[in-house]
Design a protein around this nucleic acid. Sequence first.
RNA 1: CGGGGCGUGGCGCAGUUUGGUAGCGCGUACGGUUCGGGACCGUAAGGUCGGAGGUUCGAAUCCUCUCGCCCCGACCA
Length: 565
Amino acid sequence: MRWSRTFIPTLREDPADAEFPSHQLLIRGGFIRQVAAGIYSYLPLGQRTMLKIAGIIREELNAAAAQEFFLPALHPATLWQETGRWEDMGENMFRLKDRAGRDLCLGMTHEEIFTDIARKEIRSYKDLPQIWYQIQTKFRDEARPKSGLLRLRQFIMKDSYSFDVDWEGLDRSYQIHHDVYCRIYTRCGLKFVAVEASSGAMGGSKSQEFMVRMEAGEDFVVECECGYAANLERATSRLPQIQDEPGGDGPREVHTPSQKTIADIADFLKIPASHQIKSLVYMVNNKPHLFLVRGDHQLNESKVMAAVKSVLARPAQPEEIREAFGAGAGSLGPVGVASMPIYADPALRGRSNLTCGANKDDYHLQGVTPDVHFKPVWVDLRTVEKGEPCIECGKPLDVYKAVEVGHIFKLGTKYSESMGAMVLTADGKQTPIVMGSYGIGLERIMSSAIELYHDKDGIIWPVSIAPFSVIITPVNYKDEMKEAADRLYDALGRAGIDALLDDRVERPGVKFKDADLIGIPYRVVIGPEKLKQGKTEIFHRATRQTEVVDIDSAVSTLLGKLRTP
RNA sequence: CGGGGCGUGGCGCAGUUUGGUAGCGCGUACGGUUCGGGACCGUAAGGUCGGAGGUUCGAAUCCUCUCGCCCCGACCA
């Protein structure tokens, strides 16, 4: 395309309300414009990159025998009511009514719609397996859209769904997606890691997230050089066993006036935090539950929810605590608690002579031994911290911020059972279809590529998702330089290379700055001196290396470079 | 939803404390000189100061309400 005929509104200065490089550069480079919080228009450059990403996704999924659909974004409430998600999705779902007063919503994801097709059309195990996908606009009424295209209210997602007759089939479909996803992100040029993840409100047994490390991220990845990797919500570590002093003879009450926090007690009783029990109360379906971690550990709410198998868990209010325990939050403990479930983190297991609240204001208990003085359900509850020994190999763990660019789930039969998607097995029995669901956020791929690859001058696109592979920059678009540029542009077009011809009447400096900003991987400069010798320069955006070649061999040189970026 | 910040030509900002009728840089248009890393000179166009109401002789500026955007937190397939 010709720059003069292409809408590329670049900006000289960083936009005022963009914080992260990806957001700033997408706006400055003329890729996107904001419409409202979490809602953006994709301009020609942005759209070209989105289409390249979509193209890679399509190629890889089609190669795995997945089939592309296109489902509606507008859904009747009735389908979502069948699975209970009409309620479960709460305020995160955009809802509306039609003129007749019927409830509708904008799809956040498409399990219901795909499952509806499956239950109506698929009768027999012979029709399975199926992998269906689409690239669709999704809507979520985010509480806080942010960070440019990283947290949107409207975004494009590739979502696929697998349908199998049994769990072994699901394992295969899941593995296919895992492998396809790795190929997709690799082709998009991303450095990523697949981590164990928690399934949240989606239901299902196993899930993995594909994460790209970056400051703009909102998730935390725990990773070890041995290959262990998990979302902080799921990660565990191996902790050195603590040797306890002999505990005397059972819990004894000690007066601790106004000593409420772990640190208070450590100070007042001279007992280190690691020898205390931290007692936290959560309301699960509005009933109090007690959660215990070591005094120097942090409770992990995702693990709380996993432990109670409910997302309806929240910290108890002070009044609720007092009603349940007869004491304030600073004086709680598990001893003598019979009215509610008690969950304890394994770091407390095998310990003795511990200190905790006495469930009586201003009193604590010393000499407490788990499994003797109280009987908890043992379940992982604590948050892993950087530097702790890896659960697999014992080396120190790294913890870093990351963005989730994809998520794959083994859903199981949650949707097929609630919606009645059944097939007949070989021995003639009805069985619910076993499903998986798999998502990729296209905008997040675009944004994370920029977060990963940029410099002070602009974006440095991976070739595969650059809006153009090559930009031709005649120092002056006239006379011989114009002819040479036009000829090269035509030749690149015939060679199937995406080229942008900067035919603007601008000073060279402006063209160079703009080319750097929008991040085209290769720039071919047509300048007067070199041209006289029949030469041209090929500038590599990523390395800033310039190579002088015969202008007649520019196409073949570029073809070679583009093949191996 | 809680806390904080900000809304002034297309973009980035000053002006608001102490009311007097809007300014700078960039961009844009035109003319000229330039032409290998965001040129220079000259001329010009372009603003309901987010919106509504109020105080005042007079409001970008003070008061009330409201809308929007950004950041932190809560929340979150």
